[in-house]
């Protein structure tokens, strides 16, 4: 009398193997992950906007582009001029004017200006060639100053830091800690959001109005930009317009605020020297 079976059993194919559609499963999880990241990103953006302005100015790391050891007299003169112009604009805000440092980039032909972390504003030679009145230049400087006044670099850094942390926590970024250190420093070179640009445009117009009593000339630079289309990203530094709302749209907004007045010319030495 044997207790052995006659043959091996026919193995069931669907007990150890769920046979669920892997694609549907994958799509479901990927969508869930995406939703999670989008949700957390929004939460991060919101909290950074709230927290950013509360961070002491001195905590912002100094990020200066194109640092040069030796500056020519002309270079220094331009920087001084830009510095004075910006300071006079900023002083219109009264008590809470933030001290900013202006940097002139003599070797950059691309018309551009940008604010970086540590209350720094950079202006390229190309930009100075492009503007024809002090008012137009002041509009741009006031715009960059507004970014700093609204603490946009700090907000961007916070967002970047939180994102990197989030991705490291989710295990989506292999070198988590290193990436945090590396990326946050560059955060201010990243684009400001359209909302930030919008706010800065409005603030710049306000400053212009306070300083000159009118906003004539504010649209000039953007008018000039409309004629040229070569404002793409260059060398890792986003151009003034890459991250900005559609130039046309901004122009219309500025036009809506524009009041007539007399333009202040740029100093002679500046216009003659930059056109050499």
């Amino acid at each position: 009398m044997t207790h052995l079976p006659g043959s091996n059993p026919r193995l069931p194919d669907d007990i150890n193997n769920s046979h669920t559609s892997p694609l549907a499963d994958f799509a479901f999880m990927a969508a869930g992950l995406l939703l999670l990241i989008v949700g957390l990103s929004l939460a991060i953006g919101w909290s950074a906007t709230w927290l950013g302005p509360h961070i002491p100015l001195s905590w912002e790391p100094q990020i200066v582009i194109g640092k040069t050891e030796e500056k020519s007299d002309h270079h220094q003169k331009i920087e001084r001029y830009l510095q004075n112009l910006t300071t006079s604009l900023a002083s219109e805000t009264g008590k809470s004017a933030i001290p900013v440092t202006l940097h002139y980039l003599p070797d950059v032909d691309l018309p551009n200006a940008f604010a970086t972390s540590g209350q720094n504003i950079h202006v390229t030679a190309g930009l100075l060639n492009k503007v024809s009145s002090e008012n137009a230049l002041a509009m741009i400087l006031a715009h960059e100053y507004a970014h700093i006044e609204y603490r946009h670099p700090a907000i961007l850094m916070l967002e970047q830091l939180a994102h990197t942390l989030l991705f490291a926590m989710l295990g989506l970024n292999e070198d988590g800690a290193g990436a945090i250190a590396g990326n946050t420093g560059l955060a201010t070179l990243m684009s400001f959001s359209r909302k930030m640009e919008h706010a800065s445009d409005i603030r710049a117009l306000e400053l212009l109005l306070l300083r000159y009593g009118h906003t004539q000339g504010a649209a000039e630079f953007f008018n000039a930009m409309m004629l040229e289309e070569d404002y793409e990203e260059t060398g890792g530094v986003l151009s003034l317009f890459a991250s900005h709302p559609d130039t046309n749209e901004r122009l219309q907004r500025i036009a809506g605020y524009t009041t007539d007045g007399e333009l202040t010319p740029l100093p002679d030495w500046l216009t003659s020297a930059t056109e050499e």
Partner: peptide
């Protein structure tokens, strides 16, 4: 594909269907 699907499962938890068929076949 299975690696990615399984790493997604790592986040959400649950039955790792992508590996089950593989291990069933291996056994």
């Amino acid at each position: 594909f299975k690696t990615v699907a399984a790493s997604l499962r790592n986040l959400f938890g649950g039955r790792v269907g992508a590996y089950e068929t593989l291990i069933d076949r291996a056994r």
